[in-house]
Design a protein around this nucleic acid. Structure first.
Lengths: 229, 229
DNA sequence: CGACCATTTGATATGGATCAAGCGATGTGG
DNA sequence: CCACATCGCTTGATCCATATCAAATGGTCG
């Protein structure tokens, strides 16, 4: 359904908007070649970018805003696979279909790149091929860490989440959360109530402060690291 | 520590032992080139093949036996990442270090391949490069599914585990488990007691039978699939 | 201002963990 | 060849962390 729109969008010329600096693990040198091939495309809040089981004909790079990938079990339980921030590439699969769905969490601009173009480039330039592999491997590494989160206690999961977000935030100790409590809960395998209560506990312990529900300030990283096991 | 042993082993000539047929997802055409480069190396039960954070200078292919990869949290909780059966390749990382440790669950023969050899080959043959990528992507896909298991109920996790093992077993409905209850528990994020009780429940429901503790017969796949959500 | 939605807080329920004991298979030394 | 120790697994009793159900609060937008 979305495919038609992307198709036409991807024939437009790229604007070449620079993304802000992000950890190297999430971007890679592939970025430079990608920058000039894709079309920047706007997505409104909660709009689907692609659905699971749709053909993975495109890959995507976040220019602005935040994206979530997720799967829903038949009874409605939702697992969020990852949050993607500006500079992150997502939707990269070696298989034919997307394993997870993707949605914009906030207003977002996303560079849409034809998969075949990149794969074709990789065939000629094995540096690109290596980047493609490296990107997939980083993603694998991230998911392996995510699994570890899911066997921990609620406090440990929340602490892990906060440290993860803080590591990616521009200002080290102040985090602006683009996602709701429900998103956080579904990322951590908890309920919103437990997430909320855990924030409150951490605040009472002077480990964090929560000036507004979407803003978290880390007050005691040592304590968070301790929880992070 | 193990590295020295592998080093010397990898200079020996490969025996060229053929692995039994396995699902394509887990092997790939890379296998053929690998077959002739590595050295088959025996590991005894519970012996470490590599440790997490060790340099990932080798990759591995199971010839016989079973291997587990795992991580241990500082307080002893263990998460098993995957079980590898004959034909499976493991230890493939794009980073410099192994993310998980690996151990033989049973007596095992493992082909040990120099990573640099494969990567070098990939630089010249972009078909190999693609296989390398594809293998990593399959692993990513598997881990993404594993995450989904970890948000389910005990029954659902066990059902999922049994279906997963059955899919890989030679005879469709009879599973010979090479791993202990503790291994299963650590794979599923449960305790041995819960795993054991769940087997008993499924047996009482005539969904499976458990002639011996290491052998499971699926009696009602529909029921298992239903649980698998 | 009032309606709506997200978040927090409170009260209670419950699935799986923990603690503890029993049991069967395997192996070992006498 | 048997008594006994050991190990892996099962079963039972109880506990507890988190889910669930419910209500109050607060922030946002028309």
């Amino acid at each position: 359904m979305l495919t038609a729109a992307i198709q036409s969008a991807s024939t437009r010329s790229a604007k070449g908007q620079g993304a802000r600096t992000v950890p190297a693990m999430r971007t890679g040198a592939l970025a430079s070649s990608i920058e000039m091939m894709g079309a920047p495309m706007p997505f409104a809040r909660n709009v689907e970018i692609y659905g699971e089981n749709e053909p993975a004909d495109y890959l995507y790079k976040v220019i602005s805003g935040t994206v979530r990938t997720y799967k829903v079990l038949n009874d409605g339980r939702r697992q969020i696979g990852s949050f993607y921030l500006p500079g992150d590439i997502f939707g990269l699969e070696a298989g034919d279909e997307h394993a997870y769905s993707a949605e914009a969490i906030t207003e977002a601009k996303v560079l849409v790149i034809k998969r075949s173009a990149v794969v074709g480039l990789a065939a000629r330039d094995n540096n690109v091929a290596r980047q493609l592999w490296s990107l997939t491997a980083s993603e694998l590494h991230r998911v392996q860490e995510h699994i570890l989160l899911l066997i921990k206690t609620a406090q440990e999961r929340v602490a892990g989440f906060l440290l993860e977000m803080a590591a990616r935030a521009p200002s080290g100790n102040e985090i602006d959360l683009p996602m709701s409590r429900q998103d956080i809960a579904d990322y951590l395998g908890l309920t919103i109530e437990t997430v909320s209560r855990t924030f409150t506990q951490l605040e009472n312990a002077a480990t964090i402060s929560v000036p507004t529900s979407r803003r978290i300030v880390l007050r005691n990283r040592a304590a968070l690291n301790r929880l992070n096991a």
